[in-house]
């Protein structure tokens, strides 16, 4: 990977530029510009934190499903086995695994979000 600049730094530079021009925009576009800057920040976090989050999800799903596979196929199987009623809130380890996966995802999507039970 190119490191000068890294991809997340490119995203960061765009977000900073959007913030610079934001004061010159009308209210509606100023709002949308903030959303766009947030999108760039999310891209940056996904680049830096995404691989570890996905690797951990793969490991956790493999434990719950007692098999190996890539993220997409295990996610599909996990959904199917929950939907069929085979895996429930009573299933040992399921909620614990889903909790870690949810925390890793919110850390990418909305790190400032105060989830239920977090205060």
């Amino acid at each position: 990977m190119i490191t000068h600049p890294r991809t997340e730094e490119l995203a960061q530079s765009v977000a900073l530029w959007i913030e610079q021009i934001r004061p010159s925009l009308d209210p509606r576009n100023a709002f949308l510009a903030r959303v766009a800057a947030n999108a760039m920040a999310t891209i940056g976090r996904e680049i830096t934190q995404g691989p570890a989050a996905e690797a951990e999800a793969v490991r956790l799903m493999a434990e719950v499903l007692d098999r190996t596979g890539d993220h997409a196929e295990m996610n599909t199987e996990l959904c199917a086995r929950i939907r069929s009623g085979e895996l429930t809130v009573e299933t040992p380890g399921l909620l614990a695994a889903l909790t870690v996966m949810a925390r890793n995802q919110i850390a990418i999507d909305q790190p400032g979000y105060k989830a239920e039970g977090s205060l």
């Binding site: 889903l98 949810a102 990418i108």
Partner: peptide
């Protein structure tokens, strides 16, 4: 991308 906020809440409620 706000779906994950509801997931973070739902796991605690569950």
């Amino acid at each position: 991308r706000r779906v994950s906020e509801t997931e973070a809440d739902l796991v605690v409620l569950l």
